[in-house]
Design a protein around this nucleic acid. Structure first.
Lengths: 243, 243
DNA sequence: CGGCGTCCTTAACTTTTGTTGGAACCGGGC
DNA sequence: GCCCGGTTCCAACAAAAGTTAAGGACGCCG
């Protein structure tokens, strides 16, 4: 079958994480997708907008965020190739948050019409996508815990490990290092702290020889300490479909 | 049709929030539900358990939470009659958080088998439930923002208003006051602060004449100040199905 | 009705985090 | 090579939140 690069990461992810059947894979391969390039730091969909497409990340990094009245911004999640961060807009038509690129990105747009049709035709695919939005919610739950309860160094380590575990699924971890293209300002927005405090925390874990963070790349120096610091239990990622 | 009290709050909520059809309502009325009583402060399902049922709150209040290694607990959401807090376990079989009662509660258990069958039979119902889990996720997103970015008095007010707006749907708001059966310890766990700080914050909003909180009941004294403090925009609750 | 346990309340003190402002660094464009 | 804008980094100080400890209110149960 014709399996183009656009869908490769998505199918790879679904195969590992959702145990997709070959029929379902074919259905997904047949989905019409319109590909478009975006520069870094650009809004893809904005809070309040009405969406008629959902967006597959083909290449690059994205983030979801909300901005409150005072102007403070909270990053809700990071997204990598193979993910469809705004699948929820299929049923929640008006966006309640922003989706934007972190890096230059190539995105594939899938119309809600076509997704709906596919669901009617193939309930199995519908379940896979439903499950995907449920995992999304599970990640939000863990993010709440991170921001609400963990000491700031643990927050940083936790976000890093979550990202790494997801990057592994698509084969994007290179030994002990991986991409995490955020500025310290953005790291602060993800962890619920200011950028200067983010800087303090990064400095601290660096000095303790646990992890290096440089120009959007994480390098783990002491895996044991890193894990211990992060208090990470990957069960919430629900990466095993059989469970 | 036989519309018993068990399903009343659920149907009321779905009618307002999801625009359910009469056929779908009949399907839901026909769902077998096993009702059980629970005392206050009791686990219904625990983190790590494998669920074969989902649980409809018929009466009483529940909360979802996660506990980290250090023993700290984060409350993720509050739940009221008519909601199915663990609908997600339909596809994410092993729980990644706890569901427990806050008050004495009567809960109705719906087997995953019956839910699956209903979805196959009636895709419209499946979409309604899917939408419901997506709203759940939207509430988590807002909860992240609350804990991550808002000053603590605003956090408190925001959680209160969210609860109130949801209680309105099932007709459980009595003028300017409504139930919120949490101890100050639990409020702290919801807001990501300690119980003594929760006490400070409650004292402050009380002294400013904004809101009273007493033995699990909220009484709003100054609605304007309350709204302003909370920075509340209910769009994320997606209570209008047409949008 | 007295005692016990839970929750609420507060104070004093410590630690964490935010704020402000500025210096050093770094990469890209000219 | 050099300037420019955005990061990164840092220090000094201020504010917010955590910790510990203890007294008081309140309801429940014996």
């Amino acid at each position: 079958m014709h399996s183009d690069a656009t869908r490769a990461a998505l199918l790879r992810r679904l195969r590992v994480s959702a145990g997709i059947s070959e029929d379902d894979a074919r259905e997904i391969e047949a989905l019409p997708i319109v590909v478009r390039q975006f520069p870094a730091e650009t809004a893809v969909v904005r809070d309040g907008e009405r969406a008629t497409n959902s967006c597959l990340i083909v290449d690059g990094f994205c983030a979801r965020s909300k901005t409150i009245a005072s102007g403070k911004r909270q990053i809700l999640s990071l997204h990598i190739p193979g993910e469809i961060p705004d699948l929820m807009s299929l049923f929640l038509h008006v966006m309640d948050h922003d989706l934007s690129t972190l890096t230059p990105a190539t995105l594939g747009f899938i119309s809600h019409d076509n997704l709906q049709k596919l669901h009617r035709r193939s309930p199995g695919v519908a379940e896979i996508f439903w499950r995907d939005t449920l995992i999304d919610a599970a990640m939000f739950r863990e993010w709440i815990v991170n921001v609400g309860q963990r000491p700031t160094p643990a927050r940083l380590a936790h976000v890093m490990i979550e990202l790494r575990e997801r990057l592994k699924l698509i084969g994007a971890v290179d030994g002990n290092s991986f991409e995490m293209p955020l500025t310290q300002e953005q790291i602060g927005e993800a962890l619920g702290i200011t950028s200067v405090h983010a800087n303090r925390v990064i400095k601290q874990v660096r000095q303790e020889g646990i992890v290096e963070f440089n120009r959007g790349r994480v390098t783990v120096l002491d895996e044991r300490k890193f894990q211990e610091l992060a208090d990470f239990d990957g069960r919430y990622l629900h990466q095993s479909p059989t469970l």
